[in-house]
Amino acid sequence: MIVYITGRADWPAPQIGIDPAAGFVHCSDPGSVLIPARRLFAGRRDLLLLEIDPALVGVPVRWEPGDPPEPGGPWFPHVYGPIPASAVVAVHEFPCDDDEGFRLPESLAVR
């Protein structure tokens, strides 16, 4: 599974669009999602974590270094085309808790 962070107001949608500057959809896996969550979404309480089956996206998924790349850092799944809503297999609340920061939903943390 791969995951995508989005605002509650932006979901549901017919698809997840690509980042025009990058040319792909920035995703993560459960083991790396806290990196962009902390870096880009700190303090946000309106977030959802979309669980996506990469076999259902219908476009290439490539594992590549993060942006900016970190020596020895994790690689991230980049989806080279829009992700259809039908590829989203679960939706999880993903708020930033003042005391703990972000926490993975239990169903993703145990994988």
Rank of each mutant, 00 (worst) to 15 (best):
P95M: 07
M1K: 11
V33E: 02
G66T: 06
E106A: 15
P82R: 11
W11G: 01
V61N: 04
A55L: 13
L56F: 06
V57F: 06
P30T: 04
P68F: 12
G31Y: 02
D46A: 06
A37M: 04
G23R: 10
L104W: 10
H26T: 08
V57L: 07
P30E: 03
H78R: 15
A13T: 14
A13M: 03
G81F: 09
D67E: 14
F102N: 00
W75N: 14
T6D: 01
T6N: 08
G23Q: 03
V110P: 00
W63H: 14
R39H: 09
E93N: 11
G101D: 02
L104A: 04
D98E: 14
G17P: 00
E93F: 09
F41I: 01
V25N: 05
F76A: 00
W63G: 05
V25L: 00
R44I: 06
Y80P: 00
F76H: 05
D97C: 07
V3E: 00
C27R: 05
E93K: 13
A42T: 11
A109E: 08
P84W: 11
L108H: 10
P105H: 09
P12Y: 09
F41L: 03
D67A: 15
L50W: 00
T6A: 08
G81W: 09
R39S: 05
V88K: 08
G7S: 15
V57I: 08
I2Q: 00
E51Q: 12
D99G: 13
A42Y: 13
V91D: 02
A42K: 13
G7D: 12
G81K: 10
P60A: 11
D10Y: 13
M1T: 13
P20C: 02
F24A: 14
S28V: 07
P71A: 14
A42Q: 12
V88A: 05
F41A: 01
P20D: 01
G17Y: 06
D99H: 13
D97Q: 10
A85H: 07
S86M: 06
